[in-house]
Design a protein around this nucleic acid. Structure first.
Ligand SMILES: [Zn+2]
Ligand SMILES: [Zn+2]
Ligand SMILES: [Zn+2]
Ligand SMILES: [Zn+2]
Lengths: 155, 155
DNA sequence: TTGCGGTTGATATGATATAACATTGCGGGT
DNA sequence: ACCCGCAATGTTATATCATATCAACCGCAA
């Protein structure tokens, strides 16, 4: 069902399904899913790996070169509405695999092929936070390692 | 015992103890704890919050302005030997609270006062990784929120 | 029409990080 | 003493990531 970048699958279906879901969510919520925003999400969905803001900018350049804020603004829209996620470790962005579902995302990042899988994060810091009286508002959880294919290739 | 930045404590003792521990570890392991490296760790230990590379650079400038690689090289030394940690969310660095102990660090970052506490991370993503056949080599785990003092002040 | 809010376009700048190469200082072998 | 190799440092330039600012545009409603 959900997209697993580490294994062969019909990714065109993931692409179409996600874009349709975001279309619907924006309509529901009264958000403007403008052409630029849609194109950026489309690029993220087509890319085999996380894209930096300037990667996106370059690929938008079909329409003539754009300035950095164009990419950052579209990404801000997508991230703040839960349609994409930022990877702090990579300074890069991926499309969300479950837009609309409330979820705390975690990421598995292959250091060899750069593919990224979105996983569901457990709540592991709650205990430490409670002990210190800390109120958690958001969590970054990103694992770096090797995907199955790259681990096989490396052995 | 270990340093808790969210509560008042005799931090000078933390500072001295950590610096001494790192001195000893470097001697044991045949690492060169040079003046620059020591000064950078000292700055990290004294700072109430995580420091960016350029913050450090500026504070080293007592000796005359240095170029960025000076800071980055010292930080690389400290991070790769486990004497400091990099916070991906902040592009900044903190001294390790338990140098020498093997540990998987997690961080609690107060968005109001910018103080950072190091916690012990559980092994969180192992289940998700196993399901996908992913081999984890390193994990970034950083929670953003409010420390007790700032939460009280905000209510 | 006029004003307003949200989006986009464009220029400039700020902040973070690394490449590349020269230089220094120190120990080991000759 | 000399040379060598190696690790650390110094220095310049550049790459990469991100934001401030202001102008222009567009759909909508008072
Ligand atoms: Zn998601
Ligand atoms: Zn891979
Ligand atoms: Zn630590
Ligand atoms: Zn605080």
């Amino acid at each position: 069902m959900s997209c697993d970048p580490f294994h062969r699958h019909d990714h065109a279906a993931c692409h179409d399904r996600t874009l349709a879901a975001v279309d619907a969510l924006c309509a529901e919520r009264g958000l403007q899913f403008t052409p630029t925003r849609r194109e950026v999400l489309d690029l993220l969905l087509r890319a085999p790996k996380a894209l930096g803001a300037y990667d996106i900018l370059a690929q938008l350049a079909g329409d003539g070169a754009k300035a950095p804020p164009v990419a950052y603004r579209a990404l801000d829209f997508l991230v703040s509405n839960g349609f994409a996620h930022r990877l702090e470790k990579l300074n890069a962005y991926v499309a969300c695999a479950h837009p609309g579902d409330a979820h705390l995302p975690a990421f598995l990042i292959c250091r060899a092929c750069d593919r990224v899988a979105e996983a569901d994060a457990p709540r592991p810091l709650n205990k430490a936070a409670r002990e210190q009286g800390f109120t958690i508002e958001g969590v970054v959880m990103e694992a770096v390692g090797l995907c199955p294919a790259c681990a096989d290739a490396a052995e």
